[in-house]
């Protein structure tokens, strides 16, 4: 009986920790780092984190001024530094993907909508700069029918020059709840392990093509490791 109730409290504590903004940011950051494509911008989370960083900075300043125990101050400072690192790294990882797949993102509405407003501005500016650079150095020197950055030539029927993320790449992910076989995405045009019946228990690690867990990641049923 006693041990049962103790287990209950640790579980409560764990679930409490798992839903703090710091943990949510860490999860968002890990997902963003591991996923090959750009994920939805966690607007509300980032807003909250920014508020907390400001609050923490003020607390640290206050404590330094009023001469609170230096150890306490440095612990707060450390916490602050970690949060700031996570936030910066999260935003950096996104920029890196935006830069790399810029043309693909700008011409795919669904991906473009995943950016924050400020990232959209950044993406447009970047696209302008790289576009001019490629035009000046390569494209304008080529014969007339071959000057598009999106198509190999005017005879191409679709955009066949745009760099896209490889969604078939394998990722390591962990289920956060039970996932039944029917929930995995089946992509009929890819031959990757299609007949394999899959299910995941909570906490189970899997090594799987990103494409098949894309939607599960979005709904938060699993996370990247």
């Amino acid at each position: 009986m006693e041990s049962g109730s103790r287990d209950g409290t640790t579980e409560d504590l764990e679930s409490l920790i798992a839903t703090t903004d710091a943990e949510l940011l860490r999860r968002a950051w890990r997902n963003e780092k591991a996923a090959p494509e750009i994920l939805r911008y966690e607007k509300h989370l980032v807003d909250r984190i920014e508020g907390q960083i400001q609050l923490m900075e003020e607390t640290v300043d206050d404590y330094t001024e009023t001469g609170v125990d230096p150890l306490t101050v440095s612990l707060y400072q450390m916490d602050l530094d970690r949060t700031q690192f996570l936030l910066r790294s999260y935003l950096r990882t996104r920029l890196l993907k935006i830069e790399r797949f810029i043309l693909h993102i700008l011409k795919t509405d669904e991906l473009h909508e995943r950016l924050s407003d400020k990232e959209k501005i950044f993406a447009r500016r970047c696209a302008g700069v790289i576009g001019k650079h490629l035009d000046d150095s390569v494209l304008l020197n080529l014969p007339e029918n071959y000057q598009s950055a999106l198509r190999q030539s005017t005879t191409s029927e679709e955009d066949d020059m745009v760099l896209e993320p490889r969604l078939d790449t394998f990722v390591v992910c962990k289920a956060r709840e039970y996932i039944s076989p029917s929930e995995f995405q089946d992509d009929s045009n890819s031959s990757l392990s299609m007949d394999l019946i899959l299910e995941m228990e909570p906490g189970e690690l899997s090594f799987i093509p990103y494409r098949r867990v894309q939607r599960l990641l979005e709904s938060g049923k699993l996370e990247m490791v």
Partner: peptide, 24 residues
Amino acid sequence: EYLKGYSASLDAYMNDINLDLTVD
């Protein structure tokens, strides 16, 4: 030229979000 242009758009973005991303 590209480096200059890229730097400018990165600076503008960091200015926008009021956070220097090149540290840490």
